[in-house]
Write a protein that binds this DNA or RNA. Structure first.
Lengths: 132, 132
DNA sequence: TAACAAACGTTATATTATAACACCATGATA
DNA sequence: TATCATGGTGTTATAATATAACGTTTGTTA
C-alpha cells in the first residue's frame, strides 16, 4: 500500500529533537528535553523511537545506545546502515556510499545464510579532534 | 613489549563460560552461572569482560549486549569484527573473511577520517531456522 | 456508527552498566 | 629494606537503559 507515513504527536516531537541535535541523543536525554511538552515517561520515548526506526527516520547507534536522524534522502536504506564514529568527540556521521552499500548487500555468508540487513560502525578520530 | 598475557582467576572463569557457551552470553547470565565459584557482583563480571575484550579473547555483540568467544585463531583482528546474527534463534557466528576484512580496513571516509576499527553486524534467518 | 488498530498515559519493574572505596599481591626501584 | 606503582580482588550502592502491563483515547475504515 505504501501510503505516506504521517507522524503522531509524540513521534514528531521526538524526531524534531533528534533532527535538531548535532550529535547522537540518548533516550533519557530526549526525555528530559521534552518534559516541558508533557511527555513524562520513558515508554513514550521508546515507543516513538521504535516507530521512527521502523520508518527509517532515525537510526540507533548500537555501540552508544543513542539515536541519530537519518540523513540519507528518505532512507530506503535503513536496512543497510554505516556510520563513522569519533572516539574523541563522539560525533557520528552516516556514511552513504553506494559502492560500500552494494558490496555489503551482496556479501554472502559461506554458511549459506541470507542477510536481510546489516549495520556497520567505523571508529576513529575525526579531523577536528586530530588537530587538537 | 608484547608479553604473553596471562589471565587472572576471574578472567579465566568468565572466559571459560563464554567459550563453552553455544551462543552469545549476557553479563548477568554469566554472573548467575559463576556464583558457585564465589563471584557475586556485576563489577567482577564487567571487569573481566573489559579485559578479555581488550585482549581480543571475546567480542561484544553490540546489538544484543552480549558476548561471544573469539574464534579467529588468536584474533589480531579484534579491530575488525564481523558477525552474522540470526534474528530467529539468536545464533551468532563470527565471520572471518579476508577479503571483507581487507575491503573494510581499506575503506576511506570521504570526509578524511582515518578509521582504527570497525564492527559489522549482519542480520537474517539462519539455515536451520529457515527449515522450520 | 461500530469495530479495529494505533497511539497515548501511567505505574511499576527488569536489565545493563558504572562509581567508589578498601584491600592485597607483585615487581620495580630508590 | 622501604616505598611505590600496577593490576587484580571484593563489596555496597547507584546510575542508566529498556520493557511489561494496564486501561484510555484517537483515528481509520467498513
Amino acid at each position: 500500500m505504501a501510503r505516506v507515513q504521517t507522524l503522531s504527536r509524540n513521534q514528531q516531537i521526538v524526531l524534531d529533537i533528534i533532527e535538531k541535535a548535532k550529535g547522537p541523543l540518548k533516550a533519557y536525554s530526549i526525555l528530559f528535553n521534552v518534559q516541558k511538552k508533557g511527555i513524562n515517561a520513558p515508554q513514550q520515548i521508546y515507543r516513538a523511537l521504535d516507530k521512527l526506526i521502523e520508518m527509517g527516520k532515525i537510526h540507533k547507534i548500537e555501540s552508544k545506545n543513542a539515536f541519530v536522524a537519518c540523513r540519507s534522502s528518505d532512507c530506503e536504506i535503513s536496512k543497510a546502515t554505516a556510520f563513522s564514529i569519533c572516539e574523541s568527540c563522539e560525533m557520528v556521521d552516516e556514511i552513504s556510499d553506494t559502492k560500500l552499500s552494494k558490496y555489503l548487500s551482496g556479501f554472502n555468508h559461506k554458511k549459506g545464510m541470507k542477510f536481510k540487513r546489516f549495520n556497520l560502525e567505523f571508529f576513529g578520530i575525526c579531523k577536528k579532534c586530530k588537530k587538537d
